[in-house]
Amino acid sequence: MNKLILSTAALALSAGFAVAQDVVRMGTEGAYPPYNFINDNGEVDGFERELGDELCTRAELTCEWVTNDWDSIIPNLTSGNYDTIIAGMSITEERDEVIDFTEAYFPPDPSVYVAMAEDVDVAGGVVAAQTGTIQASHVASTGATLVEFATPDETVAAVRNGEVDAVLADKAFLEPIANEDADLMIIGDDVMLGSGIGIGLRESDAELKATFDTAIQSMKADGSLNTLIEKWFEGMTGPY
């Protein structure tokens, strides 16, 4: 009897919600300007917000934005709490083993060191990075002492208060900070890590990956991606 009720209820459910697969939940961190951040109205904003909305329009998808802690952003994707990661995530081999990436929508972003003085020894000193980033792995493999913080904000704060000598992070993130603060400066050459930034997807979602790839290609072809990059990243020329 119980079983019968259950299965009829299930039938009613599946009949009632003929689920349209065209709602895509976009996962982002919301703490990494100008890529993505929560603006003063409490909404997701930034380069990736605008890019994502444009991609969804082109692919005729309805998109919904969700924020998630950086630490658990991949497990929550694989367990299906959202369908994409669009959070300034560099395409690396390690990540590629677990999730899939679309083609890059942003060139390999150079990382830079920011410090309070020109003569800081970034290869032997104390360097801060955000936990779980490619920069953290990079610092761990150099001779420097790695200090890890949970958020990008704290890494910069640690340089300001002298706790660490330098911070390694994406250039696009550090550049405006260094420009606005007279005490901070970019030192040394750009460090190239990763192979560009792409949208992360579940490996089982080949169809969605193809859809986004097509949309990205079309944005590259008509130059709108370049325009968008130039709008959000001051002094950068569109690479595509």
Partner: peptide, 10 residues
């Protein structure tokens, strides 16, 4: 290490 204090040298 979860709130506040950073981890040094992993």
């Amino acid at each position: 290490f979860f709130s506040g204090f950073p981890a040094w040298k992993q």
